[in-house]
Design a binder for these strands. Structure first.
Lengths: 347, 347
DNA sequence: GATTTTCATCATAGCGCTACGATTGGGAGG
DNA sequence: CCTCCCAATCGTAGCGCTATGATGAAAATC
């Protein structure tokens, strides 16, 4: 005996669907879909009718349905250690700007320098079948790396080159070279001993690599060189603290050249020197990293090494868009965006 | 005549689907789904089998399919003017931290203080059928507001209270009061004339409101008060420029109290004062806004007004989670997170 | 021992959209 | 006037998952 199927109660997701638009424009849903994806493929008359219907009904397409059907979504997962960090914020901003042109959105995650939460974020991002993935650094946990390798999407690792080979593509620069450049610069300014100040070098692998580059370049130059690190994040306050510690341990030693793992640290150092009436750059020269926006206006103006965070973002976006256009062929491009030495008054 | 249907060629999205997991665990797909959503609802034996299958196959669920079927997604759209702005970065970080606990992801957009792109971002965010929406400010274009009003999701407007009534919920503080507090504080420190320095007050409505509050409080106090704005973003460099302009126009006038639309501006002012040997706070007192991390360590340490950006984020997250839990009843909560006056050496 | 209740598991019908191939209709060529 | 062709439009079958109600077995009640 065949009962007539009772229609189930279904929750309605959306007020207005593509079917409603199609009905209103008196075309088929396929045509509406086509108009949305390739407007040039429908005739002007039909296009206008669909457009009008969309406006009238205030239709908002459902990208989840679209993504599911099309087997790929229009999000790009972006995973950085921290958005509060100005460096990554700049790259994220550039990414959104350039990817937005191609109607790609950013699904953001920050790991707070924790590998376990990084893995979680990668897993989540992949759950959205993203069009691409951007992730800071190349140093991931083995299982994260496996996840990335088995994902069939373009992946761009940013802000770091060298070390582990990239999973797919990479845009960044060599942090050891940044450290080395700072050390050489200080030596060229007549400094006879070198110190590198850093925060959180245990978690922030890139800061650690800058430190390593600084130290080995210093040794190559035959100069005495030491490294003072503190597990706390590299803030202005920590800059003052580390400088104080240095002074206590070494006395006020003239002609020292100090590299800082970022400009915030350098700024704190400058403030502390002001308080202690230590002359910069005479008694002590300083080079920062980042060229943060206060660097040019502080007092004395901070010599620093400038990464091109915006460029990293836009190059990453370019690689992604090219990958998506090219279809499947992975090129494994690696782009070195380099860095600039900005010589101001502290060195 | 009935032809046998030829199976179409379908692109395969995913390597491993829930069906594969089910087959491997020798249960039905429904059970796998149930295990994923409510692990306590399946027996321990079956749960373990499913878990093992997921591990072995390295299964990553497809959240688009899930969201489509469940009529809601696990993303929260977050739209801010700029992530490069430390204020919003802090709130975004708090949001991700707290929403992440409930397995919600952040779909980020920044409008660069442009209303048209804000609307575009809202539209895109809504296309993902988000679980909620967080948007900075209450001042949106009419069509954006309409979009927000017709969206059936919890919406939290952050960083601004007063002005236009919120669409749904709001977490923030009154910027006029911040300005007024700065003016009153400077007056209480014996300042007989007041100036407010700001950048980009035409685009940044919140800065404009702080300026307005400062000016009217100053007038209420019977003090001469002026406002100097520059259309460029409020940076350290601009702080020096605006201060120079003030000095040129007014001469070095003792006892002036200066409010700045943010700490970056104040920092630039301090640097410029150092260069010109103008004593702070004697000749000129300064109050900033933001309590950015250099404020406590700069020299002299900066008096400032501290918004609680982290608290804004976590309160917004709390409201969202409560809304999602409560089902449909909208409460239109408005939370005033207030601000703190941090009195240091510049005033 | 027979019945009811509970609990764990399953089968099914879509969620809203896109890709694919099929269909239509009008102009060009014969 | 009849093909043929191309462009514009349409019909259909899922994409992978979840919500719902159904099923059967075990536990609890009579």
């Amino acid at each position: 005996m065949n009962e007539v199927a009772v229609p189930r109660k279904r929750r309605k997701i959306q007020g207005v669907t593509m079917v409603d638009v199609a009905r209103r424009a008196e075309v088929s849903p396929s045509t509406v879909s086509l108009y949305l994806r390739r407007p040039e493929a429908v005739s002007a008359k039909v296009g206008d009718a669909v457009h009008a219907a969309i406006r009238d009904l205030n239709y908002v397409p459902n990208l989840m349905a679209g993504g599911l059907a099309a087997a790929t979504s229009s999000v790009v997962g972006v995973i950085v250690p921290s958005v509060r960090n100005a460096f990554f914020a700049e790259t994220v901003a550039a990414l959104q700007r350039d990817l937005g042109q191609a109607r790609l959105q950013i699904l953001l995650g920050h790991s707070e320098y924790d590998q376990a939460s990084e893995e979680e974020l990668v897993r989540t991002a992949l759950s959205w079948a993203p069009a691409a993935l951007v992730i800071a650094g190349t140093d991931h946990s083995p299982s994260t790396r496996r996840l990335l390798e088995s994902a069939r999407v373009p992946i761009v690792e940013v802000w770091e080159l060298g070390g582990v080979p990239p999973v797919d593509m990479a845009v960044g620069f060599y942090h050891e070279e940044v450290g080395a450049a700072a050390a050489r610069h200080l030596a060229s300014r007549g400094r006879r001993s070198l110190v590198f100040l850093s925060g959180r070098a245990n978690d922030d692998k890139r800061a650690a690599r800058r430190a390593a580059g600084f130290l080995s370049a210093g040794r190559e130059l035959g100069l005495p060189v030491r490294h003072i690190n503190h597990p706390a994040p590299a803030t202005t306050e920590l800059g003052g603290i580390l400088f104080s510690r240095l002074l206590k341990e070494n006395g006020v030693q003239d002609q020292v050249g100090i590299g800082c793992s970022n400009d915030l640290l350098a700024l704190g150092l400058i403030f502390e020197a002001q308080r202690r009436q230590i002359a910069i750059p005479d008694a002590c020269a300083v080079v920062g990293f980042g060229d943060l926006e206060f660097a040019s206006s502080c007092n004395p103006a901070l010599s620093t090494i400038k990464p091109f965070g915006d460029l990293i973002g836009s190059e990453a976006a370019r690689l992604i868009l090219r990958s998506l256009g090219d279809g499947e062929k992975r090129e494994h491009s690696i782009i070195d965006t380099g860095f600039g030495i900005v010589h101001r008054q502290t060195s």
